[in-house]
């Protein structure tokens, strides 16, 4: 590990002041992702600003029905919060399907929003990677890419966004509150993560020095049921090959409104408006679900090893919808 400076902040203002717009500085909270990458020598911060003492550990119900989650709420605390389990079960399921108990106990909400890809070409400093080193090429395009994306890919990057939590948040709708040198601003969750396009090194909408302080979930949809289905080779402790967060309200046997988001197959937490449109007002039947799945994957692009992910993601959608509409 290379030497770096370490500073501890007591509040948000101090944290953002310490960080400033210094690109060689990083915030550190749970560290489950950052420390890993420092040890791999793919992140080389010269300065770490520790935000663990910041007063951002509360989950608050807002008057407008929304739920505001502090940046430092751990994955474990969030997953077992009674309001989350009652009103946003899809989020609890997604959180508990990720990582391991030990990791969830220290991993934070904002850290999970900031989680970086598990692409092995990204995680090895001796491999080409446009995300890590713009212009160096993409090792995954012609390499082994079974765990890579089929949605939102570009000819510069096909790395999957690895988070489960974010997939549920994409389906639920949320707002990311950030604070930095130019004050406080709110970013719709949908706009927070960026597609790789020609600039895979740009992963999110944060400006230099900005810190996530909260993630606020949209008010729960009345009568909605939710379910997160994660498909992977082994039963636990593995990133998704394909996952689906489904949130559905019904009118009798007809789908009134559906929210569908996908994980494990896309370069960002993937809200599928196409699938949602295919479901809205349609009978809750296998045929409808299959149409929604087809719509969701219509733009999918397969590489050497990823063709199977397209039918797999469709299966995740159909089964998640079958489960959620049977509740």
């Amino acid at each position: 590990m290379r030497h770096f400076a370490y500073q501890r902040a007591g509040d948000v203002a101090e944290a953002t002041a310490l960080h400033g717009s210094d690109r060689s500085a990083d915030f550190i909270a749970g560290g489950t992702n950052l420390i890993d990458m420092v040890k791999l020598d793919i992140m080389r911060p010269e300065r770490l600003v520790d935000v663990n003492r910041l007063p951002l550990t509360a989950i608050e119900s807002l008057d407008d029905g929304r739920l505001r989650i502090g940046a430092l709420v751990t994955n474990t605390d969030l997953a077992y919060d009674e309001r989350i389990q009652a009103d946003y079960p899809v989020l609890s399921e997604a959180l508990l399907s990720g990582a391991s108990t030990q990791l969830r106990n220290v991993a934070t909400t904002a850290g999970n929003v900031m989680q970086r890809t598990r692409c092995p070409y990204f995680r090895n400093p001796s491999r080409p990677c446009n995300k890590r080193e713009p212009g160096s090429g993409c090792g995954a395009l012609d390499g082994i890419n079974r765990n890579h994306a089929v949605l939102g890919v570009s000819d510069k990057c096909i790395a999957v966004h690895p988070s489960d939590m974010c997939v549920a948040m994409a389906a639920l709708g949320a707002t990311v509150t950030v604070e930095g040198p130019s004050g406080v601003r709110e970013i719709p969750f949908e706009e927070y993560h960026l597609l790789p396009g020609d600039t895979p090194e740009r992963e999110h909408a944060l400006s230099d020095g900005e810190l996530i302080t909260h993630v606020t979930l949209d008010a729960p949809i009345t009568g909605a049921k939710g379910h997160y289905l994660k498909l992977r080779d082994r039963a636990s402790f593995e990133f998704a090959l394909a996952s689906c967060a489904a949130v559905v309200t019904m009118d009798g046997d007809t789908v009134r409104e559906a929210r569908i988001a996908l994980g494990g197959v896309a370069t960002k937490p993937w809200r599928s408006f196409e699938a949602e449109a295919a479901l809205s007002g349609q009978p809750a039947s296998e045929a409808t679900f299959k149409q929604a799945a087809e719509a969701a994957l219509a733009g999918a692009v397969a590489h050497r090893d990823t063709a199977f992910k397209i039918p797999l993601a469709k299966q995740a959608i159909v089964r998640a919808l079958t489960t959620v509409t049977a509740q």
Partner: peptide, 8 residues
């Protein structure tokens, strides 16, 4: 993480 063995 990437070399998959059975877990519990």
């Amino acid at each position: 993480a990437d070399y998959i063995v059975p877990v519990h």
